[in-house]
């Protein structure tokens, strides 16, 4: 039977990502798979004028994702699944694809619409691009 052993879910705190998490947790339970999440801080200021601007934005994003990931971990724990989280800065697609390559995930679960900023959007829809570039099976949850 076809199965998934390592699942990655992209989490950005949006409603779409929450739906994706619910499905990913369900799949992890069904296949007894490892489940990880990745959150990408893609809205740090580019071309900053002071280091402080970046540092403070990073602190703010870290605080945001701490909260989001805490809720996600608690949700997964309630379902009897251990969720391992990772937060990185950068471009959402690039970082997610690199992480999949690095950790050899066999399924990526993403929400249909995240909260991608304009800077990210100029590169195209995140879910579309991830579906095209991810080196594993991709599930887009609507």
């Amino acid at each position: 039977m076809f199965r998934f052993n390592k699942i990655l879910v992209a989490i950005d705190g949006s409603e779409g990502a929450k739906k994706a998490l619910r499905v990913a947790v369900e799949l992890a339970k069904r296949f007894d798979a490892e489940i990880h999440s990745i959150s990408v801080e893609e809205d740090l200021p580019h071309y900053a004028a002071t280091v402080g601007e970046v540092v403070e934005a990073k602190h703010e994003r870290n605080a945001y994702f701490d909260k989001v990931n805490q809720e996600s971990v608690e949700f997964a724990a309630k379902e009897g699944v251990t969720l391992r989280t990772k937060v990185v800065a950068g471009h959402e697609v690039e970082k997610t694809v690199n992480y999949i390559n690095e950790r050899k995930f066999d399924l990526l679960v993403i929400g249909f619409m995240g909260h991608s900023k304009v800077f990210g959007r100029i590169w195209g829809s995140t879910s579309q691009t991830l579906t095209r570039l991810a080196p594993c099976t991709v599930m887009v949850v609507k």
Partner: peptide, 9 residues
């Protein structure tokens, strides 16, 4: 904030 570009620019 929306464009994720430094406020200075």
């Amino acid at each position: 904030v929306e464009a994720a570009i430094s406020v200075a620019i």
